[in-house]
Write a protein that binds this DNA or RNA. Structure first.
Lengths: 331, 331
DNA sequence: GTGAAAGCGCTAACAT
DNA sequence: ATGTTAGCGCTTTCAC
C-alpha cells in the first residue's frame, strides 16, 4: 500500500534525496521548488509513505524506544503503571517495550541485556532485588530510571510512592476504629524496601509495646503467603481478628480465602486495611481502607526523569503521594 | 562492559569476519581453527559480547519482534493475555511490543502503522471496530492475527473464547436458582461480536416470551454504562433485582455502585452472573457465577497461528473454551 | 583457514 | 534547486 521513498522518486522522476528532504521537512532549508514539493506531497497523500525506522535507527544510533521491566502485568497496579507510561511515551514519540521479569533475577538481567541489544534509548526498571539493581546500575550504559524500589545501591533516579506516610495514615485510620483490639499486619515480601517502609510506618503508629507481636511476615508476596500467614494467625487466636492490615492485595486474597474456609462465611465485623486498589473492594461486606498509589503521576515523573538524563540534565527522583480510600461496611 | 565484535577482533588480532563466524555458529562451515575458536570463546566468556540487533534487522529484514494492540492494559483480562503472550513470544525468541488503542479507531490505525514502520514481523490485534478490522486486513502486509473479536471482515485467523457457550452455561446456572424471578442482563458494548454472542446465549436459555424485556443495553462497556443501566432498571422495578447478569466487570462495578448508593448496603440476596474474573469476587456478600476465559490458551493459540503464517502454512483460528466459576454467598 | 567486499535504507555533508 | 556519496553494523558470498 504505502510507497517507499525510492518508489515515490521513481514515479515522480526526481531523486530519492529530494523526496527525503521534502518529507523530512527540510524542503525550505535546501530550497526545493514549490512545485516539486506539491507533487511529492500530493503523491504521498494518495499513496502514503513507509519509512524504515530500522535503518534510521542504525544510522542515528537512537531507536526512539524505551524498555520497561516490571515483575508482572497480571499485577493490576503494574499494569496501570505500564499503560500510563506507554501512553506518555507515545506522546513523546517513543515506543515503550514492556517485559515481565516474574521477580526473577536472571530473567531481569536477560531482559535488560536483550533490550540493550535492541538499542533502546533508555530503560525503566522495577528491580527484583538489591543485587539486581546494583548489577544493572553498573552494567547498563543506557539512561536508567528505577521504579518503585530503592535498595540504596544506585545513583539512578527512583520513582516511588510515599509508602511510609501511606502506611502511617492507614495504620492510624484502623487504630482509631480498632476498639482496643489489636491491628494485626500480614506482611509479604519483607526484603523489598517499599514493604519495609510500610512496616515502619505501621510500627511507629501502633502502641509501642504490643507492636511487634502483631506483625506476621513472609518472604514473598503471593496469595499462598497470605494464606500461610492467616493460618498462623488463626492458630494463635483461634478466631478471626477484628482488625487486619495487609501489605498487598495478593496477601489480602490469601488471608480472606482462609477466613472464608474456616468460617464458611466472611466475617463482616472484620475491618480491613490494604495497599493498592481493587475495583471490587467497595463491595466487600467489610469496612475497608486502601492506600491508593497514583500511577499517572508515576508515569509523568518517570518519563520526566528519563528525559532529563537524555538531555544531560540532572534527573530528579520523586516520591509520589498516596491517597487513603475508605469504604464503609456493605452488610 | 560487553565488547563489540570489532573490539574482540582487534584484541585477538583476527578479522572481524572470523569473530562473527565463530560467534554466529558458522565456525565449522568455514573451518575456523580450533585454537582461534577457543581464543574467541574465552574472550567472550570473560568480557561478554554485544551485537547490534538493529543492524542485523536491517540486513535480514526481520526484527524478531511482534506487535500487540489491545484496548487497555488496565483491563485485567487483557493484561493477563498480554503477559502470557509476552512470555510465549520470548520463549520463541521474539520480543513483544504492547500498545493500547483505548478502543479508538484512529489510535488503533496509527499504532498499527507505527509498528509496521518499526518492521515488526507480525501483529496481534484486538480490533475496536468492524471498520478497523477490515482496514487493517487490507492495508497491513504483515502476518496478522486477530484476538477476541471476529467482525467477519477478515481472512486472518481469529483467537477468541466460546462466548456463546459460556453465556448459555452462565444463564442456565442463574436460571436454575432464579426462584421464578427474572434474570436481568445488563449488556455493555452491544456492537462487539463477543457481546452479541453472549446476548444470544442468554436469550436462547431464558424463557422465550419474557426474554427480551429483561435485557438492558448500552453502546459502550464502561463503569458509567453499568451505572446508567442499573439506574434504568431501578426506575422500572423500584427495588433491587433478585438475579442479575452483566456482560463484563466494568458494568458490574457500575451496577453494584448504584445498588449500594440506593440501598446504603449491598443486597446479599442478589445473585450475580458475570464474565471475566476478579480475584475479589469470592468475597462479595452475594452468590456469584463468573465465566472465566483461559488467557494462557489464548496466548498459545495466537502464537501458533502467527508461526503458521510465517512458515507459510494455513493458520488456524481457534475458539477457546471458558470455565464457569461459582462462589457461594459469603454473608 | 581467514579476510575483504557488497548492500540492506537511512542521514548528513558535500557536489553540482 | 537538486543529486551524489559515505558509512552506521550486520550477513553472505567470494577471493586469497
Amino acid at each position: 500500500m504505502a510507497k517507499k521513498p525510492d518508489e515515490i522518486a521513481k514515479a515522480l522522476g526526481v531523486s530519492i534525496t529530494t523526496v527525503r528532504l521534502v518529507l523530512g521537512g527540510k524542503a525550505e532549508k535546501y530550497r526545493i521548488s514549490q512545485s516539486t514539493q506539491a507533487r511529492i506531497h500530493d503523491y504521498v497523500k494518495q499513496h502514503g509513505v513507509k519509512f524504515d525506522l530500522t535503518a534510521r535507527s542504525l544510522k542515528l544510533k537512537r531507536t526512539h524506544t524505551f524498555g520497561l521491566i516490571i515483575p508482572r502485568l497480571a499485577n493490576p497496579f503494574f499494569a496501570r503503571v505500564s499503560e500510563e507510561l506507554e501512553h506518555r511515551c507515545r506522546e513523546a514519540e517513543y515506543q515503550l517495550i514492556i517485559s515481565c521479569s516474574n521477580s526473577d533475577e536472571e530473567t531481569e538481567k536477560e531482559l535488560a541485556d536483550g533490550l540493550v541489544q535492541r538499542n533502546v534509548d533508555g530503560l525503566f526498571v522495577v528491580s527484583s532485588t538489591s543485587h539486581c539493581q546494583k548489577h544493572l546500575s553498573n552494567s547498563i550504559s543506557k539512561p536508567l530510571v528505577f521504579l518503585d524500589r530503592d535498595y540504596g545501591d544506585t545513583t539512578a533516579p527512583i520513582i516511588t510512592s510515599s509508602n511510609y506516610e501511606g502506611a502511617r495514615e492507614l495504620s492510624a485510620a484502623l487504630l482509631k476504629r480498632a476498639e482496643d483490639e489489636p491491628v494485626y499486619f500480614l506482611v509479604g515480601g519483607i526484603d523489598q524496601p517499599t514493604i519495609k517502609e510500610r512496616v515502619q510506618g505501621y510500627l511507629e503508629v501502633m502502641p509501642s509495646l504490643a507492636g511487634n507481636a502483631w506483625v506476621l511476615q513472609s518472604e514473598r508476596n503471593r496469595t499462598q503467603d497470605g494464606e500461610q500467614m492467616m493460618l498462623a494467625l488463626w492458630e494463635k487466636l483461634g478466631k478471626p481478628p477484628k482488625n487486619l492490615m495487609v501489605s498487598s492485595l495478593p496477601v489480602l486474597e490469601g488471608a480472606l480465602a482462609v477466613l472464608r474456609s474456616k468460617l464458611g462465611l466472611m466475617p463482616p465485623k472484620l475491618r480491613l486495611g490494604t495497599f493498592d486498589d481493587n475495583r471490587m473492594l467497595p463491595f466487600l461486606p467489610n469496612e475497608v481502607w486502601s492506600v491508593k498509589q497514583d500511577e499517572a503521576e508515576w508515569a509523568v515523573a518517570a518519563l520526566k526523569a528519563m528525559t532529563q538524563i537524555i538531555n544531560g540534565q540532572a534527573p530528579q527522583s520523586k516520591t509520589i503521594a498516596t491517597r487513603l480510600l475508605h469504604y464503609p461496611n456493605s452488610c
